[in-house]
Design a protein around this nucleic acid. Structure first.
Length: 358
DNA sequence: TAATCGTGGAA
DNA sequence: TTTCCAAGATT
């Protein structure tokens, strides 16, 4: 089957089976001339990096409600945006999201550039996202290569070279199939196919529009592709976190450094996290007590066990680290998940604010 | 180049 | 319980 015939089969499938997504203009409306808002395409693509559609939907709705366009987002306060991103993970995305919005506002007149090269120059926009925005929002004939595309191509052409070694070959194969017409719909079609039919574990080959030409299906190895290099095991790191609350109800929190793990996010003061029990001084002089409970959390490349210590602090407390946040200014939902877990565990150890202990 | 960087759901 | 995985980018 010729490349253009493969593309035609896929687009015909997409016309019927396209997923309906909040940031998407479906094939029918697209054919009628409607185009998606580049801002919404960009925002969704950044949120979707290494993140499931299900996890993104609520965040996308909240962000577009709070900040309907790139100018509004560019004008937002850093802490507000980081707080809204909390829980979604990979927080460099949020930091770069703001940098990108401000660059678009300042250097591009508030409009996203429409070429892959110009998009690629913006913060947080890499090869995949640049191609996706160019193709989906501006209908440029660019080829997107995400995890779905890698999987679909590796199966369609029975590429047995493991990832990431195979990536250049898979990219070339994907580029071959990118049609000059409807490149945006084509990009979304390949990803929809990967997400709904050509899934990682149990591909539904029987209802796949590419079941006839698929080489991996013919060889009976579809579910085994793409092959991947073995992953290194995750070590366990230990750490300590201090949850202090002033008697007026204000919590002692700190803004983490811009770079590194949970960079730019709010968190509880504490030790570094290392494979040996790290020494740490409390963020304020007080009679800290061990909570007797620990947070267990797994990051991308290590497991963490976080030992929790708590204390009530006087209203005239001057901390060595961090700052007090009044109850009205503190939303637990602003915390990254590991820090919110700590809060959820420690919160019952504190009396209602203002009440005498007894 | 290889390591770093989150989270939650599914199997 | 553990592993795998999801519309990757950055350094």
């Amino acid at each position: 089957m010729r490349d253009d015939e493969l593309s035609a089969e896929l687009l015909a499938w997409y016309d019927i089976h396209a997923r309906e997504l909040p940031w998407r203009v479906g094939p029918a409306a697209r054919k009628a001339g409607e185009r998606p808002d580049p801002y919404r395409v960009w925002l969704s693509e950044v949120m979707l990096q290494q993140t499931t559609v299900a996890a993104v939907k609520d965040y996308f709705h909240r962000f577009t409600t709070l900040w309907p366009d790139v100018g509004a987002l560019a004008a937002a306060e850093d802490a507000r945006v980081m707080g809204e991103w909390a829980g979604l993970g990979y927080y460099a995305r949020a930091r770069n999201l703001l940098k990108c919005a401000r660059a678009v506002a300042a250097d591009h007149g508030g409009r996203f550039p429409d070429s892959r090269a110009a998009l690629l120059a913006l913060p947080g926009i890499g090869p995949y996202t640049a191609a996706a925005i160019a193709a989906i929002a501006f209908d440029r004939p660019e080829t997107v290569v995400d995890g779905n595309v890698e999987r679909v191509m590796s199966r369609l052409f029975a590429v047995e070279t493991p990832l990431p070694t195979a990536k250049p070959d898979l990219t070339a194969l994907a580029a071959r199939l990118t049609p000059p017409e409807r490149p945006g719909d084509h990009a979304q079609a390949v990803m929809d196919l990967g997400a709904t039919i050509c899934t990682p574990r149990n591909p539904a080959c029987g209802i796949c529009p590419w079941r006839a030409p698929c080489l991996a299906r013919a060889e009976g190895i579809a579910a085994a592709l793409p092959r991947k290099l073995p992953k290194t095991p995750k070590p366990t790191r230990l750490g300590r976190a201090y949850l202090g609350r002033r008697t007026d109800g204000a919590w002692l929190l700190e803004r983490r450094p811009e770079t590194g793990l949970l960079g730019g996010m709010l968190g509880w003061p504490g030790s570094d996290w290392a494979e040996t029990e790290p020494f740490s001084a409390p963020p304020a002089e007080a009679d800290w007590r061990p909570l007797g409970a620990e947070v267990r959390h797994t990051f991308t490349h290590f497991h963490l066990r976080l030992d929790l210590w708590v204390v009530d602090l006087p209203v005239d407390c001057i901390p060595d680290r961090g700052q007090f946040l009044a109850p009205a200014a503190f939303r637990p939902s602003d915390l990254p998940t590991v820090m919110r877990k700590a809060f959820d565990l420690a919160r019952p150890a504190f009396d209602p604010p203002g009440n005498a202990r007894g």
